[in-house]
Computed example of a mutant assay.
Amino acid sequence: MEQTFLMVKPDGVQRGLVGEIISRFERRGFKLVAAKFERLPDARVMEHYAEHVQKPFFPGLKAYITSGPCFLMVFAGKNIVKISRDMIGATNPAGAAPGTIRGDLALEIGMNVIHGSDSVETAAREIGIHFKPEELASYTRIDEQYLYE
């Protein structure tokens, strides 16, 4: 099973959307294997967004992502990286389809509620930044036999 990293950003936390977002992934059949609630330290923000550090928008991004607590998660499931990206919707909520998290819950590109890994490789990197291996739970959901062929 693939794993992906998801993060409810400070605007999603402040708006009380954590439960709804978790629920969408669980109802879809994905398994929550790790979670934590915290304000991200600068060092991890720099590592997580390393490809953006030199870009002109980074100071604003850093100020926003450290402005309050985030809810960090690892979910597991078949094809979860692609499916979760589809569930999240376009980065700019103005172009996100209705029914997606951003299409239903966000209005601005700068405050778009959630981050999700964009590839299996990125997911592994981001999970490694935010979680120790021993923080990931291994278990079988009772309904897995009804989810996968």
Rank of each mutant, 00 (worst) to 15 (best):
K132W: 11
I142W: 13
I127P: 07
F71K: 01
A96D: 04
R27T: 02
D42F: 03
S67M: 01
H115T: 03
K82L: 07
I142T: 08
Q145H: 11
K78F: 11
P41T: 01
T91A: 13
K36N: 06
M7G: 09
F71G: 00
T66F: 05
G77S: 02
G99S: 05
R44I: 14
T91W: 09
G128W: 04
V113W: 06
I109R: 07
F37L: 13
E121C: 03
A94H: 12
M87N: 02
L136H: 08
G99L: 01
H115D: 03
V74T: 09
N112F: 02
V8H: 12
V81Y: 12
L40I: 15
E126N: 10
T66A: 02
F30M: 07
I65D: 00
Q54S: 15
H52S: 00
G77M: 07
F30R: 02
F37M: 09
A76M: 10
K62C: 09
F58D: 07
K62L: 05
R28T: 08
I88K: 07
R27H: 11
D118V: 00
D104T: 06
R28Y: 14
G99F: 12
G110W: 01
P56E: 14
L136K: 00
V33F: 05
L107H: 12
L6S: 09
G103W: 06
I21Q: 14
G29Q: 12
K31A: 14
C70D: 01
N112S: 06
M111N: 12
T140D: 10
I127H: 10
V81A: 02
S138Y: 04
K132V: 01
T4R: 07
H52T: 07
D42N: 03
L40E: 00
A123E: 10
M73G: 01
M7Q: 12
M1C: 00
Q54K: 14
I129Y: 00
F25P: 05
T140F: 00
P93N: 04
A106Y: 08
K36Y: 07
R141C: 12
R85G: 14
Y146A: 03
M73F: 04
G116Y: 05
A137C: 03
E38L: 15
S119N: 04
R27M: 03
E108A: 04
D86N: 08
R141I: 00
S67L: 05
V74L: 13
N79E: 14
F5M: 13
Y64T: 03
G77E: 08
